[in-house]
Write a protein that binds this DNA or RNA. Structure first.
Length: 891
DNA sequence: CTAGGGTTAG
């Protein structure tokens, strides 16, 4: 129908003498005539004519008649159609398909010498515009892209065409095609819009190298584009937010390279983006990159205010880099960047974390203009108060924190809020002052400061810690009645506490309650339950919780593996230990110092020195430095295996000035206990003096160990001196202490002293002199109840001491700190510790068998931890009960 | 920029 109408139209035109068709009157003439005033009229008539002609189906265009009409209009060398006209004409065709038909028509009918490139280019652009206008545009545009490819890119693309294609290709994630398109693009078509589009696209796809190249090309052509256009912003914006589906973002180098490149041309991220950039980099622990970027912006003259510096300070603080923080603060001063109240918040927090609260307080007082004028023009706010209060609480200076609270209430415009009280309640709760914690809680209620779930949690936690689980449950119930629901952090301490008193049922009950109350457990709740069960030795239950945790799609972290390993070690379920280690390797959780310490301690206790020594070597190879716990395990292992002398050697090395790890209370406790058990109370006592000299605080365990030792010696006045010291050191007696003292003091008729002790009064007359002196004086003349030791035995003992010490020296030559290998003497001695000597002999044979085991195929230079652990634990010689014959055979 | 829970050795 359309056709018919346009034919009629043509005919009508011919008949009536309306404006002549170009072909009917000589064109030159008409243009010549009209050029002065009616070019547009004539041109527009050309457009109209072409539009009308092209309304016919494409088959008809190729009829001779139509061609005769169309071609002269299209290919008029003297007055070529403008791009605008072609676009207009093509647009009128109404569909992409028709536009393409038109394109083909031009191509097939153009004489080779005719200039038709711009014709094609414009028709194609129009085709793209037609394709791009509705919902199905993406497919249509992609079709045209396909056409372009099939034509081997013979059509010159206009900027507009390129833009449409690029946008569509971006949506289709066809980055390589986009780049290829750009490369084929004529220089004249590469305008700022194209550059921006392509850069954005490349950045969005994470193709920084390509983006940098395009950027270079752009800067080469015109470096002003960066400054005038939005290019810099585009790049930076993508740089900040880009994440690939797997969460990878640009590498530090890439980010740095881009910021530098832009900075060189005077383009900088604004303060918001710079802050984000630095925050992101710091979050992935790329503090150095973040710092470089910040400095780069500063050096190239970009504007930097406090915000990005604060982000950087936060990052440095997280990395415990106080030095770096200081440098940045100095730099800020140099660059005249005014710190904000946030800057001080960060600085205070980290000063407090480094236990340098006084420095924070000092600065705080300066801010408050106490005495002098406020240096920085920064007003302290409630956050600063809270930070300091928390800091003081965390270094056990609750009383000072309390006075800051008073200041807030009376002298300051910053009234305490929930966080203020939470910090204080937590502080007092952790210090064991539940009474004060409760009082603060009441106080906040009186003042109308709303408690929140954290308030509940710190209260509950404080109570659980000081063994008042019942009160904790009461508080929790009361809060529930007020409509405050607990969260995972409420349940965790309760579960731990109930596990701690071996009330597993109650712990499980709370776990179930948590689930049924609709509170979703997080990994830590699971961990605490697993840990509680493991410590309680209920490894089967622990394993069930582990599988529940896995069902909830949580993973075990290294700490969780550690408690499990420790539990299985204690149950001697070595195959489960092996399983755990293997799983860790499989899921990529690296064993840490704690893992090694746990294994070492377990191996040491069972006397498997062979594996333990290998483990030490591996630990070192993994770059893990032995900690005080490692030495504790070694010392303990040697003590348990009748090598207290070697344990002492290790200890002495720890005390040397070159040692990096110094003995702590636990180390002393192990040795004091071992020495007392070995009947070498004299040495134990002198160790206790030594402790005092070195400023290592004895605890209840220390006193209990030594009290047991001297009880067997019957030196009462040393005991009394010790009791005084316990009181002086605020060291609480526990049931073990009471048991020893009750028995002993009532036996010697001094039970009254115990009463005085319990009430906190002094019981001794000479508590000032050293214990060793007291002991020597008391021990020279044996007293009643003193169990005399067998003289003969002690002489053999001293012989043995000598030889084991020399063995020890032999071992200390190696760079590793070895466990003391069992001496031959130990074998010869008929030990009362049947099982341990059996283990020792088995361990000593394992050194000969180990190579066999490692040659059975799997062994490689990098033995896995799990493998290492199994080599000797599964050693056949360890399993069967010892027989004297076999022992001799093996040595 | 400020508050809360689990982690090895004796």
């Amino acid at each position: 129908m359309m056709l018919l109408r346009s034919f009629k139209l043509l005919r009508r035109r011919r008949r009536s003498n309306l404006p002549p068709f170009p072909f009917s009157s000589p064109r030159r003439h008409s243009t010549a005539v009209d050029v002065s005033n009616s070019k547009d009229v004539v041109s527009s008539s050309i457009v109209t004519q072409l539009q009308e002609l092209l309304q016919h189906p494409k088959d008809e265009w190729n009829s001779q008649e139509s061609k005769n009409l169309l071609l002269p209009l299209l290919f008029n060398d003297s007055e070529p159609l403008s791009s605008r006209q072609i676009l207009q004409i093509t647009r009128q065709l109404g569909s992409t398909t028709k536009a393409l038909d038109f394109l083909e028509f031009i191509r097939t009918n153009a004489e080779p010498e005719q200039q038709h490139c711009h014709l094609l280019s414009s028709v194609f652009q129009s085709a793209l515009e037609l394709a791009n206008r509705d919902a199905t545009s993406k497919i249509e545009v992609l079709k045209l892209h396909g056409y372009l490819k099939s034509q081997n890119w013979k059509i010159d693309l206009s900027s507009q065409s390129a833009l449409i294609l690029l946008r569509c290709l971006e949506g289709a994630k066809m980055v390589d095609d986009s780049l290829f398109l750009f490369k084929r693009l004529d220089n004249s078509a590469k305008n700022p819009g194209i550059f921006n589009e392509l850069l954005r696209l490349l950045m969005k796809s994470g193709r920084i190298d390509d983006a940098l190249q395009v950027l270079d090309e752009m800067l080469e052509r015109d470096s002003k584009i960066l400054l005038n256009g939005s290019t810099g912003d585009t790049v930076i914006e993508e740089l900040v937010k880009w994440r690939d589906p797997r969460g990878r973002s640009f590498s530090d180098e890439e980010t740095l390279a881009l910021v530098k490149k832009l900075g060189e041309h005077g383009v900088f991220p604004d303060t918001f983006k710079l802050t984000q950039l630095i925050t992101n980099l710091c979050k992935r622990k790329s503090n150095n990159a973040a710092r470089e970027i910040l400095h780069c912006v500063m050096e190239f003259g970009g504007e930097v205010d406090a915000a990005p510096c604060n982000a950087m300070l936060t990052g440095l603080g997280k990395g415990r880099d106080i030095e770096g923080m200081n440098k940045l603060l100095v730099k800020m001063q140099e660059m005249n960047i005014r710190p904000s109240v946030v800057t001080f918040g960060i600085v205070f927090r980290h000063l407090c974390a480094a236990r340098r609260v006084d420095e924070a307080l000092e600065m705080f007082n300066k801010l408050r203009g106490k005495g002098e004028s406020n240096l920085f023009g920064v007003e302290p706010d409630v956050v600063l108060f809270n930070t300091l209060i928390d800091g003081l609480c965390k270094v056990e200076r609750e009383e000072e924190a309390l006075s800051l609270l008073e200041e807030m209430k009376t002298g300051s415009k910053h009234k305490p809020n929930t966080i203020t009280y939470n910090c204080l309640i937590d502080g007092f709760g952790k210090a064991g002052n539940i009474h004060k914690a409760q009082e603060l809680f009441d106080q906040m209620n009186e003042e109308g400061v709303q408690p929140n779930v954290v308030t509940l949690n710190v209260l509950v936690n404080g109570m659980c810690r000081s063994g008042r689980v019942h009160s904790a449950v009461e508080v929790f119930n009361a809060m529930k009645e007020k409509g405050l629901k607990g969260n995972a952090a409420t349940y965790t301490p309760l579960i731990s506490a109930f596990c701690g008193v071996n009330n597993i049922d109650k712990a499980m009950q709370f776990f179930d309650e948590m689930l049924s109350s609709g509170c979703s457990p997080d990994a830590i709740v699971y961990y605490s339950l697993i840990s509680g069960l493991s410590i309680a030795g209920r490894m089967d239950d622990a394993s069930i919780v582990v599988s529940k945790l896995k069902q909830a799609e949580f993973g075990l972290d290294v700490a969780c593996y550690n408690v499990l390993i420790s539990g299985f070690c204690k149950k001697n379920k070595l195959e489960r230990v092996y399983e755990m280690l293997e799983e860790m390797e499989k899921v990529g959780v690296k064993p840490d110092t704690v893992t090694y310490n746990t294994l070492l301690s377990s191996l040491g206790k069972s006397g498997d020195f062979e594996t333990a020594n290998k483990l030490m070597k591996k630990m070192r190879k993994e770059g893990l430095a032995p900690s005080v716990v490692t030495f504790g395990a070694l010392i303990h292992a040697n003590c348990l295996n009748d090598n207290v002398d070697y344990a002492m050697t290790i200890f002495q090395e720890m005390c040397s000035t070159t040692s990096k790890v110094h003995p702590n209370t636990v180390i002393y406790n192990i040795l004091i206990d071992a020495l007392c058990k070995k009947d070498d109370v004299e040495k134990a006592v002198s160790l206790m003096d030594d402790m005092e000299e070195r400023g290592v605080r004895p605890n209840t365990t220390t006193y209990n160990a030594i009290l047991k030792g001297i009880r067997d010696k019957g030196v009462l006045n040393v005991a009394l001196a010790l009791m005084d010291r316990m009181i002086a050191n605020a060291c609480r007696a526990d049931y073990v202490t009471m048991e020893i003292l009750t028995e002993w003091l009532s036996a010697v008729g001094e039970i009254g002293k115990l009463d005085r002790f319990v009430m906190g009064y002094s019981v001794s007359s000479d508590s000032r002199s050293s214990l060793a002196k007291l002991f020597a004086a008391s021990n020279s003349s044996p007293k009643a109840l003193c169990k005399s030791s067998d003289g003969k035995e002690s002489s053999t003992e001293s012989m043995e001491k000598l030889s084991t010490t020399s063995m020890a020296k032999l071992f200390t030559v190696s760079t590793d700190r070895p466990l003391r290998a069992p001496s031959k003497l130990a074998d010869r001695k008929t030990s009362s510790r049947r099982s341990s000597s059996a283990k020792i002999s088995a361990a000593s044979t394992s050194s000969q068998r180990a190579p066999c085991k490692s040659s059975d195929g799997k062994a490689s230079l990098t033995t896995s931890l799990a493998e290492l652990f199994t080599v000797s634990t599964y050693h056949p010689l360890r399993e069967p009960p010892e027989s004297p014959d076999r022992k001799r055979k093996s040595s």
